[in-house]
């Protein structure tokens, strides 16, 4: 009986708390401010150390981001474990592995500005309730907290802490439906603007690691756009196809089809390739931080769904994959 009373008390307390929260943070966030935040990450010079935490692990990295006349340069360096360095410039990525710089992969060459454009931002607000959640101090700076609360339980909530002056993101967290943090990163030390080390910037510096080599257009594009005939029937509302490509993948003989769907904040990629009967390609669900991955062999094809969404969402997406071509 005593437990019952206690239970009721806790539940009631929780309800009151939840109600109070909705009233406190009801202010909607203006799209202009979100745009500032999105642009700040690309237009600001900064240098700092941040921690990234997922599952039960924490990793520390140093980042330097500078904007030169032509475009952004960014250097990411792991401070724990074996030394790893990534340099990103104009859509190309170099990785420092075994004492030499190699071009590991290239994302689609993007324009100077992020693709978080006004129309995509308004789509965002139809999938998420975006609201201000107060002011907090992060890495010595004042930040505005913004909460992206999903309108269904098929995606995660996102919480970001943006520097009130520049709009730079100083902390970001992904929360599950129990409001538990499943992945987050936060700056612990940060310098915005001012005198930032640029000695590594410029092709000269990583030309030594064969950065000067021309990249074939196919690699630079991260694959070729195709119409594969594969469709995914069940996706949460608001997920739109953003890309359908055929791409080479390490360790695969045949090119892999990748279809990407996004709701503006999270994305789901579906990979389709012929099943080569490899015993390692077992069906199953795994997850790391906010990312869920689900493998399944369907009708002689190995299908993989990956996304920053709850496990049930990738499972649902994969189970609805079908071939609708010729």
């Amino acid at each position: 009986m005593r437990m019952c009373v206690a239970l009721r008390r806790v539940l009631l307390g929780g309800l009151l708390l939840a109600a109070a929260n909705t009233y406190a943070g009801e202010r909607q966030v203006s799209l202009d401010w979100l745009k500032t935040v999105a642009f700040a990450a690309h237009q600001t010079d900064y240098s700092g150390v941040f921690v990234y935490q997922y599952d039960n692990r924490i990793e520390t990295s140093r980042i330097i981001h500078v904007v030169e006349s032509d475009s952004e340069y960014e250097k990411l360096e792991s401070l724990d474990g074996p030394k790893r360095e990534i340099i990103r410039h104009h859509g190309q990525v170099w990785c420092y592995i075994n004492h030499k710089m190699v071009q590991v992969d290239s994302q689609q060459v993007r324009g100077r500005f992020p693709s978080l454009l006004p129309e995509r931002l308004s789509a965002l607000s139809s999938n998420y309730l975006i609201k201000e959640a107060g002011m907090e101090r992060v890495a010595g700076y004042n930040t505005q907290v913004i909460l992206f609360q999903p309108r269904d339980n098929l995606r995660y909530a996102h919480k970001i802490w943006a520097h009130t002056d520049s709009g730079l993101l100083l902390k970001a967290a992904v929360l599950n439906d129990k409001k538990q943090v499943i992945e987050q990163y936060a700056f612990t030390q940060l310098q915005i603007g001012g005198n930032i080390d640029r000695s590594w910037v410029g092709a000269k510096d990583f030309a030594g690691y064969d950065a000067g080599l021309p990249v074939s257009p196919e690699t630079a594009m991260g694959g070729t756009t195709i119409n594969s005939g594969w469709v995914v029937d069940t996706l949460p509302a608001g997920f739109k196809k953003t890309r359908e490509i055929q791409r080479p993948m390490r360790g695969k003989h045949a090119p892999v089809i990748q279809i990407v769907y996004s709701d503006g904040l999270g994305a789901i990629s579906v990979f389709i390739e012929p099943d080569d009967g490899d015993e390692d390609d077992v069906d199953g669900l795994t997850s790391r931080g906010a990312v869920s991955l689900y493998h399944k062999v369907l009708d002689k094809h190995l299908i993989t769904a990956v996304g920053e969404v709850p496990p049930r969402t990738v499972m649902q997406a994969l189970d609805s994959v079908r071939y609708n071509g010729k």
Partner: peptide
């Protein structure tokens, strides 16, 4: 599976939002 995760990461919108730090996951 890491290859799938990285391939996915390239096209995830988190790259827009997080800008610089978007390769954190890749590093780890």
């Amino acid at each position: 599976s890491n290859d799938y995760l990285m391939a996915h990461q390239e096209f995830s919108p988190s790259i827009d939002m997080n800008g610089g730090a978007s390769y954190i996951r890749t590093v780890s």
